[in-house]
Each structure stands twice: as C-alpha cells, then as structure tokens.
Amino acid sequence: MPADVSRPRPDHPGEQAAADPIRLLAIRESALSVDEVFAAVGDAASGGTALFVGTVRSHDGGADVEGLGYSAHPSAEAEMRRIAEKVAADYPVRALAAIHRVGELAIGDLAVVVAVSCPHRAEAFEACRRLIDDLKHQVPIWKHQTFTDGAEEWVGV
C-alpha cells in the first residue's frame, strides 16, 4: 500500500527552515533587479515564494512627486541583517533576499525588492510582509521627496 503523501510531515527537512537562509542583503546605488532577487531565493524545498517590489510613485499625500532620493545611515545593512535574521528565526524560511536602493530615483524606478521562500505559500506571504514592514520601519534609510510644485520633504527621519 502506498504511503499517505497528503499528510504533512513537520519532521521532514524540507518543512523546516534552512540552516543559512539569508542569500542576499544589500544597499545599492545602482538599479535593482527583480530577477536577481528571485533567483537568490530559489529553493527546491520551497512550495511558496513571495516577492515584493517597491517603486517610486508619481504622487504622495495628494501632491505630485517629481523625484526622490534615498540616503542610508552606515548601520543600515547591519540593521537589515538583524531584521532578516529575526524573520528567518520566526518563520520556516528556506531562502531570503532584500535589496534597497539609495541615491536619486525617478518615477517608476525600483526602490526596494524583497523575497522569501518557505515550504508553503502562507508562510512565504507572512514572512515577506513582515520582512518589508520591518525593513521600512526599522532600517535607517531616509527618503527626500521633491514635488512638482517645488516643495520638498524628508520621510522617515
């Protein structure tokens, strides 16, 4: 009689977090690549991969945005690693990647790309959301927006 493959096996290595799931963490001045991040989290034991791409939008708070610049504190990458390690500890992460852009960006440019692979889709969605939310709120990266009317503002300072 064949084994019942529909039953979950939490003791199976593929159902557990990888020993070293953090595959890519970076803050860059150059354009970001969704393909690079997606490739970094490829894992044969993962049944779900969640990817988030943050782009520069044309408006904010009812005002038209002309462009923006990101700047990061020297500790930003270390803080990204701390957050990634926490997400990996709290979820069965098989692979994780996150990159954030700094410098001057135009409307439509990629500002941040994060991805997480887990054994199942629900875990991947939850871990990816936690990763981007914590990066946004805790990593010392600041946004300087310039509006079409000449006004400007700092966000996250």
Rank of each mutant, 00 (worst) to 15 (best):
A17W: 03
G48A: 07
R101T: 13
H12F: 14
A151S: 13
V37Y: 04
A97C: 05
S58C: 03
L131T: 07
L135C: 07
D133L: 02
F125P: 09
E126V: 00
A111R: 05
A89D: 04
A122N: 12
P21Q: 11
G156M: 06
I141N: 08
D133E: 13
Y70D: 09
G62C: 06
P10Q: 09
A76T: 07
A63N: 11
S71E: 14
A106Q: 09
R28E: 15
V56D: 12
D133R: 06
A17P: 01
S46P: 06
G14E: 12
P10W: 03
E152Y: 03
S6E: 01
A151T: 09
C118N: 10
D35G: 04
H12R: 06
C118Y: 06
R121G: 11
V113G: 00
L68Y: 08
K143H: 07
P119M: 12
V102R: 03
I132K: 06
T49Q: 12
G48R: 05
D4K: 13
C118K: 08
S71K: 14
V93G: 04
E104S: 12
W142Q: 03
A84H: 03
Y91E: 02
E66C: 08
A111C: 13
E104P: 02
R121N: 10
R81Q: 09
A84D: 05
A63D: 06
P10S: 10
A44F: 06
A115Y: 04
D133W: 05
Y70A: 07
A31Y: 03
D149N: 14
P2S: 11
H59S: 08
V56L: 06
I22R: 00
S117R: 10
A98I: 08
C128P: 00
D133F: 03
L110G: 00
A124W: 13
L25Y: 02
H12P: 01
L110V: 15
L105E: 06
G47M: 14
V139I: 05
I27V: 15
W154Q: 11
F125W: 15
G42P: 03
D133P: 13
G103A: 10
P10H: 06
L25I: 07
G42T: 08
E85G: 01
H100S: 10
A26Q: 12
E15C: 06
E123M: 07
A50H: 12
L25Q: 09
H59W: 05
D90S: 15
G14Y: 00
G62T: 08
V102W: 05
L32Q: 03
A45C: 09
P74V: 10
A3F: 10
G108M: 09
D43M: 05
G42Y: 05
D60R: 14
V113N: 07
L110C: 09
A106W: 08
M1R: 15
G42F: 04
S117V: 11
R28P: 01
D20K: 00
L24Y: 03
D109Q: 08
A97R: 05
A18I: 12
A45G: 14
H59F: 04
A122P: 02
W154K: 01
E104W: 14
E85W: 01
